[in-house]
Design a protein around this nucleic acid. Structure first.
Lengths: 238, 238
DNA sequence: ATTTTTTACTTGTAAATACAAGTTATAATA
DNA sequence: TATTATAACTTGTATTTACAAGTAAAAAAT
């Protein structure tokens, strides 16, 4: 499953720099080594290095300035929307806990699913699970996830507690989110949702319906997310 | 103001192809001319052409497939969020009308503005206006816009009725939106908002607070948007 | 000391070239 | 006819070379 040497050079450098930024080796505002320095350091030519930096810039990890250099940009967009910023103070992701409400299981797709499905997806069945995500022990997100059962061995038996779905897919299946689309609504909380999110019935709740593409062109991730935005806002970059 | 010949070749080709896609010369699903054909057509080399296509792909106008070609992608992400898709049927933008509620005027910035401001912005003052946007003659968006008064001559006297702010900035001031950030909440409608959006008081309303960057590094656009998501959803790509 | 100029860096643009790898239609084979 | 191999496309990766343009610090002039 794990292939190491077939990845192109520019991708390799991208992953290295990305990891260094995430791990805090390069901090927000820091200047990355110059393109020529990176060439020497990693034995690549400038167009190759530039391709890595270009991808990093597109993903929001750095910002390039002619004449100055590449500057590490504050926190990347955690795939469109999912990073949360408190209205009063910033919240580190260390306070985020995940509780499984319905364990992953393979079920048939609903007839009137929120997005149109391909034949392959319909045949493959749907890996379904529900999670409640808590911030500082307060329930903020209620996530319902749907994934087509395509090339994901043993996923129903994996440990989802307190781990990101994206992280699991990335580490165990080499699946990267490429992009996607979403519909956003403000709705009054239903009985079940208000119970899980500790809200009064009928209070305003944010509802997201998302479809995410991956590096496997046949595989999409779907989720329906209910969010209590009373104390926190959804924060997104674009 | 208008400079024509200093723009780089890859940017020129980007603009041409982008316009052709917007104008429908290349339709959704169409295959763009191959990279080598574009080289011949526009007298450029492949790296230059590839840079144009790469930017188009990043902006969501096309999708590239190795071995096949560049395929026109359906409607680009109208800067993060602002395109609207009906829950029942797709809505063409021809049904969108804009009504000015408060005409553009220069005022001082509020002390507790929703985003932190630079000194230059504070000194320049704030161009403020409010607009109601209707879809099929139903009020859907209530927009409050804030722009720093930096290098925007005569903007307070321009015609905003039924025109996009982005379009005006692009055509008259060569200002392009580069990206931005936003906070999203679901809130109960206040009296004023519920009146403008034809809602009962306390009904759920979507609230966006956005900061957008431009090709002028000192100029940002801010807006506070209230949205009736009863019949329509906010639709976004990422 | 202050201002201006120069210099040495940085990224941006662009060409020419080569081969790898994925896709598709055609031609050869069974 | 159906399958397989080939060929002719497509985009992806990578090197090499050259100069333009923006930035910042050092050097020179005022």
């Amino acid at each position: 499953m794990v292939q190491e040497k077939n990845i192109p050079q520019h991708r390799r450098l991208y992953e290295i720099l990305r990891k260094h930024i995430i791990d805090g080796i390069y901090k927000e505002g820091d200047l990355l080594p110059s393109e020529n320095e990176l060439c020497q350091l990693y034995g690549m030519t400038r167009p190759t290095v530039r391709q890595s930096l270009s991808t990093l810039a597109n993903d929001g990890y750095i910002r390039k300035h002619q004449g100055k250099g590449s500057i590490v940009h504050h926190l990347p967009k955690e795939i469109g929307i999912l990073s949360v910023s408190g209205t009063t103070s910033a919240v580190g992701s260390r306070n985020l806990k995940t509780r499984i409400i319905v364990k992953p299981s393979l079920i048939p797709w609903s007839e009137d699913f929120m997005f149109p499905l391909t034949e392959l997806e319909k045949e493959s069945g749907c890996i379904y699970f529900e999670r409640l995500r808590l911030l500082d022990n307060e329930p903020i997100f209620y996530d319902i996830s749907y994934i087509a059962n395509i090339n994901l061995p043993r996923i129903t038996s994996r440990q989802f507690e307190n781990r990101s779905l994206f992280q699991i897919l990335r580490e165990h299946y080499h699946i990267e989110i490429k992009g996607g689309e979403q519909r956003i609504k403000a709705i009054p909380a239903s009985g079940r949702i208000s119970r899980y999110l500790h809200l009064g019935k009928g209070q305003s709740v944010l509802h997201l319906e998302r479809k995410m593409g991956t590096n496997n062109p046949a595989l999409f991730l779907y989720s329906s997310i209910f969010c209590n935005t009373d104390k926190y806002s959804i924060f997104g970059r674009f």
